[in-house]
Amino acid sequence: MPAPSDLALPDQAAPSAEASATAERRESYRLHFPYAERPRLLIGSRDYEVVDCSTHGVRYIITPLPTLAPGDWIQGSLKFRRQPQMSIRGSIVRIQDGEIALYMPDSEIPFSTLWSQERYLLTHYPMRKK
């Protein structure tokens, strides 16, 4: 099965120090969502827009900025449109520009779910930028 087209591929060995400084360092594919199709992350009684995700990571918008810090753990439910809700648990790796990035070492978004979302987005949003 080919890799989804809008997802970042893992970085290969960079040929120079300069190239490695700007090279992609993600371990997993990442799917970016247009505004109208963003999944929701439910944490307690609040819900947040998910900007992008991978099998072991989620980046979501948060306002106002929380009293959380990198290293803190978050537990909640992720709800994709047209998919069942799933529980996730992750550690904050970054808080930047009103967004929180989570790494989920013990939770996984199934690749089949990401692939299904990608196919839907390519069909319904053919002109979106990669």
Rank of each mutant, 00 (worst) to 15 (best):
residue 55 T to E: 10
residue 100 I to V: 14
residue 9 L to P: 01
residue 70 P to W: 05
residue 4 P to G: 11
residue 98 G to Y: 08
residue 30 R to A: 02
residue 48 Y to R: 00
residue 63 T to P: 02
residue 73 W to T: 15
residue 50 V to Q: 03
residue 29 Y to W: 06
residue 71 G to T: 08
residue 7 L to M: 15
residue 91 S to V: 15
residue 28 S to L: 09
residue 26 R to S: 01
residue 86 M to W: 04
residue 44 G to V: 13
residue 118 E to N: 15
residue 113 T to L: 10
residue 83 Q to F: 11
residue 101 A to E: 05
residue 30 R to K: 02
residue 74 I to T: 02
residue 66 P to I: 04
residue 61 I to R: 14
residue 19 A to Y: 03
residue 67 T to V: 09
residue 95 I to M: 14
residue 7 L to G: 09
residue 10 P to M: 07
residue 79 K to C: 12
residue 15 P to S: 04
residue 69 A to S: 10
residue 32 H to M: 07
residue 17 A to N: 09
residue 24 E to F: 13
residue 37 E to Q: 11
residue 97 D to Y: 01
residue 15 P to L: 12
residue 95 I to E: 05
residue 89 R to S: 08
residue 97 D to I: 02
residue 24 E to Y: 12
residue 15 P to E: 09
residue 17 A to F: 10
residue 62 I to G: 00
residue 108 E to T: 09
residue 105 P to T: 02
residue 14 A to Q: 02
residue 56 H to Y: 03
residue 65 L to I: 10
residue 49 E to C: 06
residue 97 D to F: 02
residue 82 R to M: 14
residue 29 Y to L: 13
residue 8 A to D: 14
residue 63 T to E: 15
residue 93 V to S: 04
residue 6 D to E: 06
residue 27 E to N: 10
residue 23 A to E: 01
residue 14 A to C: 05
residue 86 M to K: 07
residue 60 Y to V: 02
residue 29 Y to F: 10
residue 88 I to V: 10
residue 21 A to V: 07
residue 73 W to N: 10
residue 7 L to E: 13
residue 61 I to C: 07
residue 58 V to G: 06
residue 73 W to I: 12
residue 37 E to S: 10
residue 39 P to M: 13
residue 118 E to M: 09
residue 100 I to T: 00
residue 12 Q to D: 09
residue 8 A to R: 14
residue 110 P to S: 06
residue 81 R to L: 11
residue 58 V to S: 02
residue 41 L to W: 05
residue 107 S to P: 00
residue 54 S to N: 01
residue 36 A to G: 07
residue 82 R to C: 09
residue 44 G to H: 05
residue 3 A to T: 13
residue 57 G to S: 08
residue 115 W to P: 01
residue 71 G to L: 12
residue 97 D to M: 03
residue 18 E to L: 09
residue 25 R to S: 08
residue 42 L to G: 07
residue 13 A to H: 04
residue 17 A to R: 13
residue 77 S to C: 08
residue 9 L to K: 11
residue 104 M to A: 03
residue 23 A to D: 05
residue 69 A to G: 08
residue 58 V to R: 04
residue 41 L to M: 06
residue 75 Q to A: 10
residue 45 S to K: 13
residue 52 D to Y: 09
residue 78 L to V: 07
residue 42 L to C: 10
residue 95 I to S: 04
residue 91 S to W: 13
residue 55 T to H: 00
residue 27 E to I: 05
residue 40 R to Y: 14
residue 24 E to T: 04
residue 79 K to M: 11
residue 55 T to L: 06
residue 86 M to I: 15
residue 117 Q to I: 06
residue 3 A to M: 11
residue 6 D to S: 03
residue 86 M to A: 11
residue 34 P to Q: 09
